[in-house]
């Protein structure tokens, strides 16, 4: 999986491309942790290039949401494919963090 990190306004956008499988899930966790260590507390994951997420990937999302729950923190996902949105929705994750149709709509509120 490829992860591209870009700062946009108040937040940091991680654009993901590929499958979030057993190999990619720890990579994603490390990338998110690095962004948090650099001081950014508003993180948006752009799922445009993601076709699949494993349970390991779900665990990383949950762990990240847990770390970003202080006042002023933001953690969101955007541009989800039908497959990935379905898994998140059925697993109940959509009530834990925000899901946006596009990057612009997400960052507009941050």
């Amino acid at each position: 999986m490829e992860i591209t990190t870009v700062t946009r306004g108040n937040g940091t956008v991680l654009s993901l491309a590929g499958r979030i499988d057993t190999v990619a899930a720890p990579m994603l966790e490390q990338a998110i942790n690095r962004v948090m260590e650099s001081g950014s507390r508003k993180i948006l994951l752009d799922f445009s290039g993601v076709s699949y997420i494993s349970s390991g990937g779900l665990r990383v999302l949950l762990a990240s949401a847990k770390k970003l729950k202080n006042t002023g923190d933001r953690f969101g996902l955007c541009c989800l494919s039908a497959d990935v949105l379905k898994v998140l929705k059925l697993a109940g994750f959509t009530s834990i963090f925000s899901i946006y149709p596009s990057e612009g709509e997400a960052l507009a509120g941050w």
Binding site: I53, S54, S55, L58, R59, L62, K66, D83, K86, V87, L88, L90, A91, G92, F93, I96
Partner: peptide, 18 residues
């Protein structure tokens, strides 16, 4: 899909209980 959703549900319940 079913197993990912089942595991995800369990993580979700675990998260809420936490």
């Amino acid at each position: 899909e079913l197993f990912t959703v089942m595991a995800g549900r369990l993580y979700y319940v675990s998260h809420v209980m936490d």
